[in-house]
Every structure is written in C-alpha cells, then in structure tokens.
C-alpha cells in the first residue's frame, strides 16, 4: 500500500541435513515494505523454485503470532528486532533500503537443525509429556463454577499460559536454557487450585526431563524475557525455583 521497494541483501543459513555442515548463502531481493518477513522469504522461494533451485526450508503456519511454529534468528535476535512479536508478525517496513540481514536457525544442542532454518523442538513435547498437565480424565469433573478462582490469580495464570512454545527463549539464552518455557507451564498450573494437588510431582518431573534433554541452566540474564514474543515474565522462573525447592523439601516421593 505504501512506500518504495527495498533492496536487501540476505545472508541465509543453508544446511542440507542434521549431519552436514551448513553455511551462509547470499541472496539479493527487492521487496515491498508492506510484506511480512516470511512473505519476503516466500517470494524468494518462489523465485528459486521457478529457477529449479531448492527453496529455503523454514517453518511457519498461522502467521498471526499464536501457533509458535515460526522462529528465525534475524541479525542475532530470535524473532527479529521488534519486541513482543513472532517472526511472522515482523514487517519489512522495519528495515531500510540497502540493509544486510543475517538469517539463522535457532541454535541449541537440544534443538538440532533438520534442514536450513528448520529445527527439531520435540524436546518441548517431551517435557510436556512428563508433567505439563493436570491429571483429569474426560468426564466426571465438578461444575466449572464450583472452583472459585480470584480474578487476579486467573489473570496471572493466563499470563503464563500465553506461551506459544516457539522456543525463542532457548534460542535467546546464552545457555540455551528452557527455563522460561518450562516455568510458564509450571506456573500456569501451580497458581490454579486445580493444579495444586500434583504441583510437586509436576515440577520435579518436568525439570528432570528438561535437564536430561541437554538444555542449559538459567543464569538469570533475562534474555529470554526480552525476546519472548508473548512477554512471558521471568517471575515464572522464580516461581518454578520456589516450587522446585518446596517439592524437593516437602514431597514424600523419594523418586519421581
């Protein structure tokens, strides 16, 4: 709708598979400032395809910042330079004509690159499988209004539950720690009365799997919070620490 086209130089990480070494490849592109960042890559891919070249593999789905599928490191920052948005919500008007843009995949031992800019984040699912739930079966639950939850508690729980599981926290952390992701889920349930019965078991199990998967540990640099597209607070990490100490001290289960 507006403005002149931008001429950009892209340096994009290409890697044909998990076992192969990757490298940066240069591309030149002219793009409308109204395009989103991923639309720019679509256009580049369409051009590559029409030339019979293999397009750049990258993931995205909803393109509304909620599904958590997309995630690129743009000039060193997960989801790019604008705070509190996902890569799909980044628009080209935030760049200047002549800019060079470096595009890298999320990098972490626990997130191996599958191809180009696609990484394997299934570790998050494994953590969830260990304890990211409230153990209730379908049916046989009390009426929804039988459980009173103060508005501010529901709201705080919702703040944590807003996590989209994109992995930007891991990508941003210098230690590739998954504490923000895990703590958001632990917090959501620890805050609610429904989640209290198994709060100790939950945090112990989730932390154990998180550690086993090779994520680093938190050193409180708060880079995760700064890059989180949903602004998930590091207070959740504090809460998880607290939950974990309490669990270790008070829980009667010797092993989880």
């Amino acid at each position: 709708m507006s403005g002149k086209h931008l001429n950009l130089k892209l340096k994009i990480w290409r890697q044909s598979g998990p076992q192969t070494a990757g490298s940066f490849v240069d591309y030149q592109i002219e793009v409308s400032p109204d395009d989103s960042f991923l639309e720019m890559l679509d256009e580049l891919n369409n051009k590559l395809e029409s030339e019979g070249k293999e397009p750049i593999a990258f993931e995205s789905d909803c393109r509304e910042g909620i599904c958590g599928t997309c995630g690129l490191v743009i000039n060193g920052q997960p989801h790019g330079p604008i705070p509190k948005i996902a890569t799909c919500q980044l628009h080209m008007r935030n760049f200047n004509n002549g800019d060079t843009i470096w595009i890298e995949p999320f990098r972490a031992k626990a997130f191996p690159v599958l191809k180009d800019l696609i990484v394997d984040r299934s570790g998050f699912d494994e953590i969830m499988n260990a304890g990211g739930f409230i153990s209730v079966n379908t049916g046989g639950v009390p009426d929804a209004n039988d459980i009173l939850i103060p508005k501010e508690v529901a709201s705080e729980s919702m703040d944590a539950a807003a996590c989209i599981g994109c992995g930007a926290c891991v990508a941003a952390c210098k230690n590739a720690s998954a504490m923000l992701f895990v703590s958001a889920k632990v917090s959501q349930f620890a805050l609610l009365p429904q989640g209290k019965p198994e709060r100790f078991r939950r945090v112990e199990k989730m932390v154990k799997v998180m550690d086993d998967l090779g994520f680093g540990s938190c050193t409180n640099t708060y880079a995760c919070e700064a890059e989180c597209p949903k602004g998930i607070s590091i207070r959740n990490i504090a809460r998880m620490n607290r939950e974990y100490f309490l669990a270790k001290v008070k829980s009667k289960e010797l092993e989880v």
Partner: peptide
C-alpha cells in the same frame, strides 16, 4: 554468527 546478546541482556 551474529550476536544479538547486547540487545537482550
């Protein structure tokens, strides 16, 4: 390759 650390911590 490019460090964005100074922008977030």
């Amino acid at each position: 390759k490019i460090s964005g650390k100074s922008k977030n911590s």
